[in-house]
Design a binder for these strands. Structure first.
Lengths: 189, 189
DNA sequence: TGCATTTACCTAAATCCTTTAGGCAACCTG
DNA sequence: CAGGTTGCCTAAAGGATTTAGGTAAATGCA
């Protein structure tokens, strides 16, 4: 019996790679076992079940996304920060479509509260420091930004914009411009 | 042997209901057979396979969404039309979460081109008739609207906004206001 | 160094979902 | 009512998930 050296950590990382290659919903305990050339049952010492594996991949993705956002925001403010933050979403989803899909997994409240999603939410607020918004408008704006970025990225990676001109890079730039204009000139009720 | 009266149509509708009750990814041929109290194999005369079933549910959802949008837009223009169109998304997703998830299923290009998604896209353009936008800005705006509505709705139904005040209805109204302001005052490059 | 414990991986088996093949009984048509 | 057609069946194979229980390797400790 040769030991491969399985750990939860390694399984989750390999699971994330698998997700990027074949899609998040194609990630199964069996596929992962095949990748390590190991029997399926062996994984169940490291991972509770299939759902647990997927949740861990989601948490990894949220971590990575938050890390990238933190890096992108360091030393930037205003529109610069907005654009950099937006690009983090888009680039991550393009480089790691499976992980990005994983990050959308619905987590139960406690898990979500303990995840890097919270950190990410704080950074969205940080982006808005460059604009003159007070509560509750700031919260509305946070939700708008989340909606636009997530919505755009998931439509684009889902092929929603693929058929038509003009190209998506141009649209992306213009959307960021538009959001900047909107935030500088937020309509009051 | 009592015949239940299965047809593709009935299966798809029941599948859509099932999706709303237990989630789109819990829709399986087995679960559907159970619901009709019929053996699994019997469904395969009406539906090619599991993927086919899901695709048909997605197409149904797209039809329904487009129908609602058409009704909502009739006799409305400008901000009125924008708000009504936005509400179609949100209401549909709330009333039929499983179907809404189905509508996000990635379709192959030909299927997508033949779907009601095309009709829906045309209606998004119709909403913009109330604003003074020419190509390519109109396309950018179409993509922005799609992103915001889809993004917001999927974050909200995914529980993304659930923890915090202010309430989501207020945010939704303010986002529609903000989009209206933005479209009336679209920044030119 | 030798033994005990823990850890990593195994076999085996139950359950469930998907899909195909082939068959019979119920319905529709003429 | 004889004919074909259709709706549902049984049977069976392949795969994924999960648990229980076992053995060999690594590790801790005397």
């Amino acid at each position: 019996m040769v030991r491969v050296g399985l750990t939860t950590e390694r399984l989750v990382r390999a699971g994330a790679e698998l997700a990027d290659e074949v899609g998040f919903d194609q990630v199964t305990v069996s596929a992962l076992a095949r990748r390590f050339d190991v029997k399926v049952a062996s994984l169940y010492s490291h991972v509770r079940n299939s759902q647990d594996l997927k949740t861990r991949i989601a948490l990894l993705a949220l971590e990575e996304l938050a890390d990238r956002a933190a890096t992108a925001l360091a030393g930037r403010a205003g529109k610069d920060a907005l654009a950099a933050f937006a690009d983090v979403y888009r680039d991550y989803a393009r480089e790691h479509p499976g992980r990005y899909a994983a990050a959308q997994l619905r987590l139960d409240p406690e898990t979500a509260a303990a995840s890097a999603g919270v950190r990410h939410a704080r950074m969205t607020r940080a982006v808005l420091r460059g604009y003159d918004l007070t509560e509750p408008d700031q919260t509305h704006a946070v939700r708008l930004l989340g909606s636009v970025f997530h919505g755009y990225v998931s439509l684009e990676t889902g092929g929603g914009f693929s058929h038509s001109a003009p190209d998506t890079q141009e649209t992306w730039t213009r959307i960021v411009d538009a959001l900047d204009a909107l935030l500088r000139n937020w309509p009051t009720s």
